[in-house]
């Protein structure tokens, strides 16, 4: 799957790179769906001897290839919330020098980055690479509810039901973009939803 090139945007919007193998006593790799491709690209036999891979397939068929890398520890789980306790344990047990690699959707990377930051790792020390879906994790600024996997602008808040437009303003603490009511000044006048980058 080819990589999506995000258009230039405002300063709060995250910028993703390309994973590179770094020297470290241990490696924690977290990915979902097509993020597996980034792990396959960066993995070296030396890294895998000290690697812990946490993977959420979301219906994609990469699990066998990842297992074939023979990481020291491998986990495949059904969702990020299901994987999170294991991720937090891995971060809590981490020693100085742990290298963190995140790959896949923005929602997955944002939430895993958040967990790593809560464990004391500066966000600037965490590598990220976007792969796969360009859907966004959105916070409704009005009701504060999070809607996952938002692909259109505007969209309907899955909590309060308001029609929200998709901002580029992003909060690392919430691992979410901001959604704001689109028809506040003209109730009922909701534009036809289109893809976020269309």
């Amino acid at each position: 799957m080819s990589k999506f090139t995000f258009p230039e945007s405002i300063r709060s919007r995250p910028i993703y790179g390309t994973l590179e193998a770094r020297v470290g006593p241990a490696h924690l790799l977290v990915a979902d769906a097509h993020g597996a491709e980034a792990i396959l690209d960066v993995a070296t036999p030396q890294m895998m001897e000290k690697a812990h891979i946490i993977y959420i397939p979301k219906g994609e068929d990469y699990e066998d290839k990842l297992r074939a890398l023979k990481p020291a520890s491998f986990y495949s789980g059904p969702s990020y919330p299901a994987a999170e306790p294991r991720l937090r344990k891995a971060l809590a047990d981490a020693k100085m020098g742990l290298q963190v690699y995140l790959a896949g959707t923005e929602g997955l990377m944002g939430q895993a980055q958040n967990a790593a930051m809560a464990a004391g790792i500066p966000h600037t020390a965490i590598q990220t690479e976007h792969r796969g879906s360009i859907a966004r994790r959105m916070q409704c600024v009005h009701c504060k509810g999070i809607t996952e996997e938002v692909e259109t602008d505007p969209f309907v808040c899955s909590h309060c039901g308001l029609n929200l437009f998709v901002r580029d303003h992003y909060s690392r603490r919430l691992a979410a973009y901001q959604g704001v009511r689109v028809d506040a000044e003209d109730p009922g006048n909701v534009p036809t939803p289109k893809g976020i980058y269309e």
Binding site: I10, R11, S12, R13, Q139, V141, K144, R167, D168, H169, S171, R172, R173, L174, Q178
Partner: peptide, 22 residues
């Protein structure tokens, strides 16, 4: 602007939505 959304951001991040000034 929302403190709840912007808390924890640095100077450039919380001013990100301001046009022209950057």
């Amino acid at each position: 602007w929302s403190l709840d959304f912007d808390i924890g951001m640095n100077f450039f991040e919380w001013h990100a939505p301001v046009p022209l000034a950057h």
